[in-house]
Design a protein around this nucleic acid. Structure first.
Length: 474
RNA sequence: GUCCCCAUCGUCUAGCCUGGUCCAGGACACCGGCCUUUCACGCCGGCGACACCGGUUCAAAUCCGGUUGGGGACGCCA
């Protein structure tokens, strides 16, 4: 295969969301697999809606996902001259013509046709008028009205359209800015794009673009239309389906590779494999295992992948990634070594970094106020003696290893003649403020002897205090 | 409405091209059990699908046709 050159070409009219990330990923994977080039191109010909800050957000999103580009970003708004040249060429060879139809009038006709149940299309009023350039004049493509335009889609297989289904699309607006259909073609030709991989919502544009290639006597790239991602309601994924911008997933505490792995497996597969490293994704990716049917976005599966990567990730690396999440809870990042230890105890219990940060609170903050239910149930006059015994035992405990602490807990239970759980829960609430937490042996080891002892006496104070409150209330 | 695309468990999917090895495999979710100092993790098990009709064939999830259903596109948006 000649050099592979793919591109991702978002329009900066909104944030990069899941659907965009999906196509970006497939293009990137394809380019990386074939050791080709991945191009970023910003399609900002919609002057009205394009915004600079969206460009930044798109770049940031791609970088966060690790989808680095080799060329670009190119901006269509900086290539207007080029589109003009191509437009003139098309007019010269008789493949395009000037049109002065009133856009509002056209819009009205379109609405009427739709209401009537007809296929709305430009009737070709200016097609044979031989108009020259002038103000308020757009350039339309003279679509052949006979014959068939088709291609071998790299994902869907053969697709064909009858040319008479197509109308004369606008290539160049009256204001001299090209439309999408012209700009893509010119760009893909001049940038030497070898493979266009895009959503299948572009299928109906494809015959038009192919016809433009023909008129330009240019060889079109290979085309692959990937199935769309649908929302739970099975319609095209859009803003109204929830937290969709890629950066929203970052904010939720999703790891970038979790999202990549998730997105890769939506519409693509490699046998029964679910978990892929970045390298494996590159190694295995190809268009022949991209499916044709649309997929529905499933947050649960994403969360599962994320918890998998949390579980299997490196403690220090995860600790580093956890820092901003702690910060947003108002917690200064503790010593990296200590935080890695904290992470080690939390990684199997968290689905996101947000959850992990929240679960980490008690390690670096006062466990009070205690979880009300837990305090009510486990920090009572009945459990006071157990806590007192625990204080004594811990004071004499020199070895804070897992085995030693487990032994200590078991001895405590044996001496009190109760089950281990009866000792563990009061201690847990005293130390962590909660009824659910990592293993107590881990907690005590990390907190250290002094801090643990101080939390136990805090809890004893709490018990005494509430007893007095009860007494004074009665 | 017209054109185009699609159709395997609730969801993501393997298998389909090169029919038999599939009374359809994996994963998420869900349910049950085990493990257990709590919560999780983990482990074991369970539930659960070839949209429908016809054709081709000794044989069809796999090939063909139709029906139904879903989606997408019909902009001087991309």
């Amino acid at each position: 295969m000649a050099q592979v050159r793919t591109r991702f070409s978002p329009s900066p009219t909104g944030a990069l969301h899941l659907g965009g990330a999906h196509t970006a990923l497939f293009n990137w994977l394809f380019a990386r697999h074939y050791k080709g080039v991945f191009i970023l191109r910003i399609e900002d010909t919609d002057v009205e809606r394009s915004q600079e800050h969206f460009v930044e957000e798109i770049k940031e999103s791609l970088l966060w996902l690790g989808l680095d580009w080799d060329e670009g970003p190119y901006f269509q708004s900086e290539r207007l001259q080029l589109y003009q040249e191509y437009t003139h060429k098309l007019v010269q060879v008789g493949a395009a013509y000037y049109c002065d139809c009133d856009p509002e009038d056209l819009e009205e006709r379109r609405q009427r046709a739709l209401a009537r149940g007809d296929k709305p299309r430009y009737e070709g009023r200016c097609r044979e008028r031989g108009l020259g350039p002038g103000p308020q004049r757009a350039v339309r493509f003279k679509t052949p009205q006979t014959g068939i335009t088709g291609w071998q889609d790299q994902i869907k297989g053969p697709i064909e359209f009858e040319n008479h289904e197509l109308d004369d699309l606008v290539l160049m607006r009256a204001d001299g800015i090209p439309t999408y259909n012209l700009a893509v073609v010119v760009d893909d030709i001049t940038m030497g794009v070898s493979h266009i991989i895009r959503g299948d919502d572009h299928i109906s544009n494809t015959p038009r673009q192919l016809l433009v290639y023909q008129a330009l006597e240019a060889k079109p790239p290979l085309l692959g239309h990937m199935p769309l991602m649908l929302g739970k309601d099975r319609t095209k994924l859009s803003k109204r389906h929830g937290a969709l911008p890629v950066l929203a997933y970052r904010a939720r505490g999703i790891l970038p590779h979790s999202l990549n792995n998730y997105l890769a497996r939506l519409g693509w597969s490699h046998g029964d494999q679910e978990i892929f490293s970045r390298e494996e994704l590159i190694q295995y990716f190809s268009l022949d295992h991209v499916g044709k049917a649309p997929g529905i976005h499933d947050d649960e599966k994403l969360l599962w992948l994320n918890s998998h990567y949390l579980k299997t990730g490196d403690d220090h690396e995860l600790a580093r990634q956890l820092v901003p999440f702690l910060a947003s809870l108002g917690i200064d990042s503790p010593d990296p070594e200590y935080l890695a230890g904290v992470v080690a105890t939390l990684k199997t219990r968290s689905k996101t970094l947000v959850e992990m940060a929240d679960a980490a609170r008690f390690y670096v903050q006062d466990p009070r106020p205690y979880e009300p239910e837990g305090a009510k149930k486990f920090l009572t006059p009945d459990t006071g003696p157990i806590l007192q015994d625990a204080v004594r035992a811990l004071e004499n405990q020199a070895d804070l290893s897992e085995a030693a602490l487990t032994g200590m807990l078991k001895d405590l239970a044996a001496q009190a003649g109760v089950k281990l759980v009866a000792v563990a829960q009061p201690l847990r609430v005293a130390l962590t403020g909660r009824t659910a937490s990592p293993s107590l042996t881990d907690v005590m080891a990390l907190l250290g002897k002094d801090e643990s002892l101080s939390r136990l006496s805090q809890a004893l104070d709490y018990i005494n205090q509430s007893r007095h409150e009860v007494l004074s209330n009665t």
